[in-house]
Every structure is written in C-alpha cells, then in structure tokens.
Design a protein around this nucleic acid. Structure first.
Lengths: 226, 226
DNA sequence: GAAAATCTTGAAGAAACGATGAAGGAGTTG
DNA sequence: CAACTCCTTCATCGTTTCTTCAAGATTTTC
C-alpha cells in the first residue's frame, strides 16, 4: 500500500509539479491553503506532510506549530526556496523531520521522503502498539492513560510490560512467573491471578474500559488490545 | 571579547585551514584527538565546538554523546565530508546545533557559527530543564537556589548532575553506582539511599519545597522536576 | 448442575525505603 | 605528622508499601 502524502504549497504550479513527481510512488493529496491543510490532517490520516515554509497568510512555520499540537506524530518535511540557515534550523527546531531547498532533484525528493518515512515508522508504531491512549514509558517507569499517570507496583509494571510487549500472545502462569519473577522463583502460580486482578482494577479505575488483559481459560493471560 | 571555539578534526590540514579561517573572528583551540577534546572541554569553557563527524577511533558522534553528558550547554556544529541525510539527521538528533558539509565557503562557516552562537546564547543563560529557580553551574561545580549556594559534596554533586541531566528518567541504584561511583565500584547499593537522603535534606533546607528527587519504588530514583 | 478454573478479599509477613548514628577514610591545616 | 574536619560507608531500626497465599464467591465448561 502506498504511503499517503499531504502537500501544502501556495503556488499551484509547484503543487502540480510535486504532485506529478510523487504520484507514482505515493498517494497524494494537495492543498494551497493552510487552514485546509489543518482540516485535512484532522479528518484524514496521512503518513507524511510536505510543507512550503514560505506561504502567505498562515505561514508554513505557523502551520507546522499547529500541526505539532494536533498531530504530534505526523512527519513533516519543510520545503523552501531559500537555503537560509535560519529557516532550516528553525524548521528542525519546530519539529520538522527534514528540510529540502528548491530547486531540488525529483529523485532526491522521493528518496528523502522514503528515508523520513522509514525513520519515523517506528515512532508511530511504538505509540500505537498498545491500547488506544495507553502509553508506557519504560525509561521513566511510568504508565499513562488519558493524561493521567497510573501508579503501578514493580510486579504490576513488569507484568504489564511483558504482556503488552507481545500483544495477543498467550502466557501461562508459569511463563509469567519465569519472566516477571525470575527463573528461580518458586511459589504459588495463583499469585499471578492476584496481580492480574490488581492491574485490571487500576487500568479500569484510570478509565480504560476495554479489557486489555484477557483470560485464556485453562492456560493463562494475554494482552488483547491491538 | 572574542567567542572561544574548540575545533576537533583528525586531519591536521583541515585543522590548519579551519584555524586560519576562524582566527580573525574567534579565539581558536584545536585538537585532533577525541579524548583530548573531552579533557579540554572540561578544563576550559568554550562557547562553541566545531566537530568532524568522521573521525577514527572515537567517532564524532560518540564524542558528541560524551560532550552532551558532561557539557550539556556547549553548542556543537557538526562537520562532514558527506552530505548524507542520515548523518545530518542523526547529528541533529544527538543534539548538534547545526550541520555543515565540506566543502564549505569560509564566509558561510563564519556566518553559521555566529548564528548558532546568537541562537544558543539564551540557552546557556537560561539553564533549562531543572527545577524552577535551581541553577547548576557544571563548570564551577556550584549549585544555587534562590540566590544562595547549596554546598554539595563531590558525590552529591555528581548524583544531582546525573539525575538532573536526564529529567524523568528512572535510574536504578546500580546504574547510579556505575555512573557516579564508576563501573568498578563494588559496595552496598543502599549507600545511594544515604546520599539521596542527604541531597534531599540540603535541597529542602535551601528552600526547595518541590520533591525534585523522586523515589521509583522497587527500582531507584529519578529527577521529577520539569 | 457438577466440576474445574478463575476472581475477589483480606490479613500476615516480607521487602523496600527513610532516618540516624557510628566507624573509618580522605584530605587539610597548623 | 598529628590533630582536625569533612566525607563516605554501612548497620540498624521504625515505617511504609508491596507480595503472598488461603478461603470463599463467582464464572466457565462440559
């Protein structure tokens, strides 16, 4: 399936040119209006946005700022007539993923889009990989849902991590004991049940309605979301 | 007063060239060795570092990583023979402030250095990423809060630095032992607790109410502010 | 509807943390 | 070089938090 690209430029001639170059490789949507671009990005789900920095009215950088607020994960490539350093640096600071100056080689443009897509693919997958809106930050040891942190104990955290890292995969209690508690742990396997229950309670209290931890009857548990 | 620039490149011919170009405008120090560069950056206080990304031994990007650990505020401009996008993106992701490809125009190089200096001047004054009002001067090894200096012991300072340079990131006691005490230290991990406690006490006595050092139960500690 | 498995509850006790203080080491000063 | 101060380490104790497991309630399966 082709990646979808949103192109924003005020010059219609440039829009046509870009569209022509990218059509063979990507699914292209074009617009010359910043507001229209925002609206499109809200209703559609683009893989990438190609954005002219020099636009009258709502400038490219302002549009990027707005996009970053709403579509935090949408990769953006800036396009500019000038090869001005300030522009480039500012663009990258605002969160653009790359910067291309006109005139450009058609082949290079396509290549760069592919590069950015490859580089950002992980990013967008990583955040989705869990239940909608549930975010797990391993480095910070934090779990967030809907803007609220869910405080977990060490075992709960490890349990969540083990399950969520392998969505849909069923784990027996013994496997979980080994992975979470350690291979040398000896104890009642039903202890797992208690922690699963507590985890479920905490997730539910945080507002997560979906049953993300599913019971595999006669066996164990699995992560059900996504 | 001229701004001081540290130039790191393994090719002596390039060093001479760069030095010649920049001498009229900046106070220049050169080295062709990564370790030497680290040492220099510790003892001197440079305004900017010009760094070749393609260096044998300790590579440019590794050096940048080290620099970022120790001299969080030192602006860095990457220099590369290739105009490779990956390089550029990686450099900027690692925290480089700009990226210049060889060959370059002498005038352009000077201009870019000025631009980065202007842009980063605020940063070094602002001291971002810490608790409100808490200032840490890495070069002077001083910590200030609300106009008063907080006297810290070496371990306390190093501990504070490690935590504060990575806000929100959770560190286990073992990680802290390795980073602060050294990889070859063997001793009770709970020694960390004592120093954390002393640090907290000193920060509290200085008037810092916020709990900037948070306990990560069953794991370690993290810097909680910002 | 009985058997088996899971879910819930609660209380004992295990583990982790914070605080204190003493012993010993490092570095400094007279 | 001895006395002093400051720093580091670690053992200990009280407190908080987490884990475990047993027992009864509930659900699922056949």
């Amino acid at each position: 399936m082709k990646a979808s690209v949103l192109i924003v430029d005020d010059e219609t001639r440039m829009l046509e040119l870009l569209s022509m170059i990218l059509k063979p490789e990507f699914s292209v949507t074009v617009t010359s209006c910043g507001r229209e671009a925002l609206r499109l990005s809200r209703s559609n789900s683009f893989d990438l946005c190609l954005l002219d920095i020099m636009m009258p009215g709502m400038e490219g950088r302002e549009l990027l700022r707005q996009l970053r607020k709403e579509q935090t994960d949408l990769p953006v490539i800036f396009l500019s007539a000038r090869s001005d350093l300030e522009d480039r640096v500012e663009g990258l600071e605002l969160g653009a993923d790359d910067y291309i100056t006109k005139p450009f080689e058609p082949m290079e443009l396509v290549a760069r889009i592919h590069t950015v897509l490859r580089r950002t693919r992980k990013r967008s997958q990583k955040q989705e990989g869990l239940a909608k809106g549930l975010q797990i930050d391993w480095a910070r040891r934090e779990v967030w849902y809907d803007g609220e942190e869910i405080k977990l104990t060490p075992i709960e955290f490890h349990l969540l991590r083990t399950l969520a890292q392998h969505p849909k995969q069923a784990f027996s209690r013994e496997q979980l004991l080994e992975k979470v508690w350690g291979f040398d742990y000896y104890g009642d396997a039903r202890t797992v049940d208690t922690h699963i229950k507590n985890l479920r309670t905490k997730l539910r209290q945080a507002g997560l309605q979906e049953e993300v931890i599913q019971t595999v009857w006669g066996f164990g548990y699995k992560w059900g979301a996504m």
